[in-house]
Amino acid sequence: MIEFHSVTKRFPDGTLAVEDFSLVLPSRKTTVFVGSSGCGKTTLLRMINRMIDPSSGSIEIDGVDIASGSAVALRRSIGYVMQNSGLLPHRRVIDNVATVPLLKGVKKVDAHTQAMELLDTVGLDRALAYRYPSQLSGGQQQRVGVARGLAVNPNILLMDEPFGAVDPIVRDDLQQELLRLQHDLDKTVVFVTHDIDEAFLLGDQVVILEKGAQIAQVGTPKEILANPASDFVASFIGADRGKRRLAVDSTVSRSGDDVVLVDGAGYVAGVIEAPGGVLPGAGAGVSTNSRARSVSNKTDQAGDA
């Protein structure tokens, strides 16, 4: 469990990046910080592994103030994955993954064996182990970054827009991989993104932030979608523009048992199964051309087939 207690960060140049932030991040859950650029997400994340020290307030991990021990030891106990993988360009993939275990004195053979297993875990071919990072694609580099983050078997994994620089298809892949990993490994994940769809996909707890890391709303994706706490949240999640409110389109001819859904602006958002013309979960009296149901959907993945 990670707890922020009235944490404020003012940078030397006077920028107030985080103002009086308090929050509990539950163990073994994924908490996503989401907000527009410059709202303080990275600053929040980097205060957890003491890459940035708060100006005031405190952060506790499992009840222990992180400021009490050594920063290096803390960082070695926490996985960190960043946008541009941050791999060491002069080391082969396997040595990158094994970096921290080697620093901690694990024997080279053991560290390498474990690194190889981690490549499997993140879905990378072992044949890539002896390449240099520059010989990998962006998506592969990110996977190596995740493998390195997992190498010390940390309880906490910090991820700062890890999939921000890869194309949508690879991002989709990596997101699914992370969901699977999280299902298997049960880490406390803190994930930063400015993509609300990614936040809703990955987050058990989603924290929508405004400038200065002011919490606009905290909750599960469902809670936030169902009850946006403010106009800001509604606009941020796209609810005000009708993007999330989907309706059955009656003008498009049906093929088989699928019915086409459109969003508020009339754009095709996806299809929904409706065996025999009846929407699932709906009463027998509801026909497919009613506008009664709204369905949350990942808008940017509409049309993925």
């Binding site: 980097r46 592994n49 890459m51 290096v72 030891a73 803390l74 960082r75 070695r76 106990s77 960190y80 960043m82 541009n84 993988s85 941050g86 791999l87 060491l88 360009p89 002069h90 970096t99 921290v100 620093l103 390195r148 983050g149």
Partner: peptide, 26 residues
Amino acid sequence: NRSTIDAARAIGMTEWQILFKVEMPL
């Protein structure tokens, strides 16, 4: 690259390790 050094620090290298294992080779 600053972000390489930043990454090295973030995964728990000491300043000396950053100097000898990252900055100097690069």
